[in-house]
Amino acid sequence: MTDSQAAMSAGAISGGMSVQTLKTRALDVAIEMVGQRGPDHVNLRDIAETIGTGVSSLYYYFKSKDALLAEVAAEGFGRLEAAVTAARNDGLGREPIRSCGGAYLRFIREQPMLYKVMYSERILAGFEVAREAERRAFATFAAGIADGAPTQATEDGALALWAFGRGVASLSMAHEAAEPGSGHALSRRLVDGLEVLIGRRIRPPT
């Protein structure tokens, strides 16, 4: 099927969805499936069946499963960025590290499988759309932690917290693979532990 034929097929789906709506709907379904099944068990055929179109229509937008997951990752970073922005502007008067840091950790805790896709080494290495979305999300996060233009110190702090999140995701996935059901509990403990540390003054050893 040529690109023009695929585009025509993409527009002619049940319910009269537009071409752009088809792509958006496919991404929404893919993200839902990632959360329910994990990324290893998501495929274009199941997504096409769910939204009521032919799989060839989806191949017009997503040339492969990895291309689909790259778009899922980019959407995930966009949602993370929106969550951090909302926390920064919530008007509750909390310290930036608690509001923005809390939003970031909450995102990881609530959407671990989506976060796993966002930080898949294969996806980040292979797709600029995912890398660019990550850069935007981190820039927003660093600005939120700094409550303005980041300094070297505040950016270092933001980077440390960002890296902690990646570690939480990696450890929880490993535990989940070894003992189903344990990964989520571990991620909650790690995030809760960091929140305790953020909320307390840590004194160096004397």
Score class of each variant (00 low, 15 high):
residue 61 Y to E: 10
residue 85 T to G: 04
residue 55 V to H: 06
residue 35 G to I: 04
residue 70 A to N: 04
residue 46 D to N: 12
residue 38 G to K: 04
residue 80 L to I: 07
residue 45 R to Y: 07
residue 78 G to C: 03
residue 66 D to I: 03
residue 73 A to C: 03
residue 86 A to P: 03
residue 40 D to Q: 14
residue 54 G to H: 14
residue 57 S to R: 05
residue 53 T to F: 08
residue 62 F to D: 02
residue 45 R to T: 12
residue 29 V to T: 15
residue 78 G to Q: 04
residue 50 T to S: 13
residue 76 G to A: 06
residue 28 D to M: 09
residue 88 R to A: 15
residue 78 G to D: 04
residue 30 A to K: 00
residue 56 S to Q: 12
residue 64 S to Y: 07
residue 90 D to M: 08
residue 42 V to E: 05
residue 50 T to C: 10
residue 38 G to P: 00
residue 90 D to H: 08
residue 81 E to P: 02
residue 31 I to C: 15
residue 73 A to P: 00
residue 45 R to H: 11
residue 90 D to Q: 06
residue 72 V to L: 10
residue 59 Y to T: 11
residue 56 S to M: 10
residue 70 A to Y: 00
residue 90 D to C: 09
residue 89 N to S: 15
residue 37 R to H: 13
residue 79 R to Y: 06
residue 87 A to K: 05
residue 62 F to I: 06
residue 34 V to Y: 01
residue 44 L to F: 02
residue 68 L to E: 03
residue 66 D to M: 09
residue 43 N to I: 03
residue 47 I to Q: 05
residue 58 L to T: 03
residue 84 V to N: 02
residue 59 Y to M: 10
residue 81 E to K: 11
residue 51 I to Y: 02
residue 52 G to A: 03
residue 60 Y to C: 01
residue 42 V to M: 05
residue 72 V to T: 06
